[in-house]
Design a binder for these strands. Structure first.
Length: 649
RNA sequence: CGGGGCGUAGCUCAGCUUGGCUAGAGCGUUGCGUUCGGGACGCAAAGGUCGCAGGUUCAAAUCCUGUCGCCCCGACCA
């Protein structure tokens, strides 16, 4: 089979020169190329042979570049992937991967798979349709229905299925059937498959879509130490994979969200268009998603004019923090600042057992972090399972809970909520001002631990912001934006316990698996790579994931010497396993240059005016033009490609 | 789901306010010719149920009602 492939290539080379027909289209070329596609490439793929020798003529590649940006595309990756013809929108959040993108994605998946396999992980394929019963066994059906993340479908028999947003249930069920003994542990399974999430709002092209491709891995362990080892091995494998992918990615502490579990890190690619905010400390190396970040905040200056005892004060029409501060400063408290206020935000929290009203108190100058509140509530409500949904109270619910108009709530007499939490920075006996649960009134000189009319649980509830102290070094934290391209979780026994997935330990007793899970958004990696590697002319693919490594551009169609030179370089490259394109299109050179810059092929060989003197031009996508002798051109490109695709580890 | 915007040729958009000729332009596509180193030029051509449905009117891309879709800002996540 291999031999046949080679022979066909040579045929292409020979038939290539002869021109037939007035438009300069070459019949022999056409036939030979389609023969290759039919006979060689699929066969190679079937045998797992890398598609390295697939010859490619630009005239047969269905290149469809756009001169203008599609109106819907806002960020670079979306804009450029669309313009260069990598992507076609099929529906909102649904994309067709064009031939060029398929090649990029294949390379991403291949690198990820190699790094996973290098850790000893075993590749599998799981179904995308998952039975409701499995998800009920883990207890996640309700949560995913509540958040409406999972799209459900029904078959003709009336069975309900979910479209896989992730696969903990399926793989845990699998492990429980095939892993019986601690001697088989640890073991890690992974797959690279389509995931579906019913996104509230798909956006940014490939960045946030309903259907995407993700590598998801799941590890099973007999001990926490073993989980720790694999968790660290996975983090290291991610580092290697992202380096090979040409991405600058870094790990940050993260919230584990709906997946659950104890420890969790996200892998971020720094980008201004990223949807996540990261707090970090250059001093200590601390980095965390703002959903999760902790830190120290400056102590509020003393409020000197505070009353000794709680004092109900008429504050007509001032419901917001700014208004209250302004009013009180004008009425006898000129030194009062927002940090002297206690802000009470009211929520309704839903669990499997029902709904609860919740009051959350934070210092007036700080923002409440709803992720932290959700987690704090979940800890408080251990018996009821996790908080499935947290939403702010509507105005009429606020009136019911406080007997006052919105804007005057406080943890004082008249507050009717099931739970009251307060940020731990409010601990201590400093007097504050807070709503009086009475329209147009606040209470001044309020000391939370002395005067609260409801039981208060303290927890970390505020959103950390730049300038707050790093929890490790105490130095000011900084902020940046990132694209989440990967995530690692320690799941513990959350799923194995719920689903009774157990193995026999050395003690001859049954134990639930201790689990970890790990994901890399392969299709999002592609978008992130473009965000990180582009310029005004188009995409600049890292060589490791470029759809092709080199393009050979003859600038004079019809000039026999130029075409011969281009053919020679092209076939030399192919013969050495370089993924090369020959731009045989009968268009002006400028069109070719623009196209390849936009598409982002890393290396270019131009055969044109220098050919008469035996010279061609070499140019890296971001480099400058260099002249080289025709005879050494292919070798030079080969050296560049090889050098780039094996980065120092 | 709340707030904002948009649906007219493959793409980017004019036209709509103030209803009225055969619905336009640029890019792209096809043919012929001239060109040929950074998105050439000339000539010719194809391509539209103006998102869909209903209404008002002698007459609707244009006005009204409904509906569907898409995009942007906020709450979910790889």
């Amino acid at each position: 089979m291999d031999g046949a492939g080679h022979r066909i290539e040579i045929d292409v080379g020979r038939g290539h020169r002869r021109r037939v027909g007035p438009a300069g289209r070459c019949q022999a070329r056409l036939l030979a190329t389609s023969a290759i596609h039919r006979d060689c490439a699929p066969a190679c793929r079937r045998q797992g042979v890398p598609p390295r020798r697939t010859p490619m003529l630009a005239s047969r590649m269905n290149i469809s570049t756009l001169r203008e940006d599609p109106s819907e595309a806002e960020i670079a990756s979306h804009r450029l992937l669309m313009r260069a013809g990598f992507l076609h929108k099929s529906g909102s959040g649904l994309y067709l991967y064009a031939p060029l993108l398929k090649r990029v994605l294949d390379k991403v998946e291949r690198i990820v798979a190699e790094e996973m396999a290098a850790t000893g992980a075993l590749e599998i394929v799981m179904p995308i349709l998952q039975e409701q019963a499995l998800w009920e066994a883990s207890g996640r059906w309700a949560a995913y229905q509540a958040s409406r993340t999972m799209l459900t479908v029904r078959d003709r028999g009336g069975m309900t299925f979910g479209l896989a947003p992730t696969a903990e249930e399926v793989v845990t069920d699998y492990a429980s059937h095939v892993v019986k003994s601690h001697k088989q542990l640890p073991v890690t399974f992974f797959q690279q498959h389509t995931k579906f999430r019913d996104e509230i709002r798909p956006r940014f092209g490939l960045m946030r879509v309903k259907e995407f491709i993700m590598m998801d891995a799941y590890s099973f362990h007999a001990s926490d130490e073993s989980l720790d080892q694999t968790y660290q091995a996975m983090r290291a494998a991610y580092d290697r994979a992202f380096r090979r992918l040409g991405l600058e990615a870094f790990a940050v502490e993260a919230d584990s969200g709906a997946i659950g579990g104890s420890g969790s890190h996200e892998f971020m690619v720094a980008a201004d268009v990223g949807e996540d905010t990261i707090m970090f400390c250059p001093e200590s190396g601390y980095a965390a998603n703002v959903e999760r970040a902790t830190g120290t905040i400056p102590v509020a200056p003393a409020w000197e004019s505070a009353p000794e005892a709680p004092l109900i004060t008429h504050t007509p029409g001032v419901g917001t923090i700014e208004q209250v501060v302004g009013f009180l400063r004008a009425h006898g408290h000129p030194s009062l600042v927002a940090s002297h206020l206690l802000k009470t935000v009211l929520f309704v929290a839903k669990t499997a057992a029902g709904s609860h009203s919740v009051a959350a108190c934070v210092r007036g100058d700080r923002e409440l972090n709803e992720v932290k509140l959700t987690n704090a509530l979940t800890r408080l409500l251990t018996a009821e399972g996790p908080v499935l949904q947290l939403r702010p109270m509507q105005a009429d619910e606020v009136r019911d809970a406080t007997s006052a108009e919105p804007g005057f709530a406080g943890p004082v007499k008249g507050l009717k909520v099931a739970f009251c939490l307060a940020d731990r920075t409010l601990q201590g006996r400093a007097p504050l001002a807070t709503g009086a649960n009475l329209t147009d009134h606040h209470i001044l000189g309020f000391v939370l631990e002395r005067d609260a009319a409801v039981p208060v649980a303290f927890d970390d509830l505020i959103t950390i912001r730049p300038g707050d102290g790093c929890p490790k070094s105490g130095k000011p934290l900084q902020e940046k934006r990132g694209i989440e391209v990967g995530h690692v979780f320690k799941l513990g026994t959350k799923y194995s316990q719920a689903m009774k997935a157990e193995f026999t330990g050395a003690d001859q007793k049954l134990h639930p698996f201790i689990m970890g899970c790990y994901g890399i958004g392969s299709s999002r990696v592609v978008a992130a790579a473009v965000e990180q590697h582009h310029d005004a002319d188009g995409i600049c693919w890292p060589t490791s994931i470029a759809p092709y490594q080199c393009v050979v551009v003859p600038t004079k169609t019809g000039d026999a010497a130029v075409e011969a030179a281009a053919n020679q370089v092209y076939h030399e490259l192919l013969a050495h396993g370089i993924e090369a394109i020959l731009d045989d299109r009968d268009v002006k050179p400028g069109v070719k240059f623009k196209d390849w810059d936009l598409i982002g092929i890393p290396h270019r060989v131009v055969c044109g005016r220098g050919v008469a003197e035996g010279l061609v031009e070499l140019k890296a996508r971001r480099g400058v033009v260099e002249n080289a002798p025709l005879a050494g051109a292919a070798a030079a490109i080969i050296a560049r490609v090889r050098g780039a695709s094996t980065p120092a580890a």
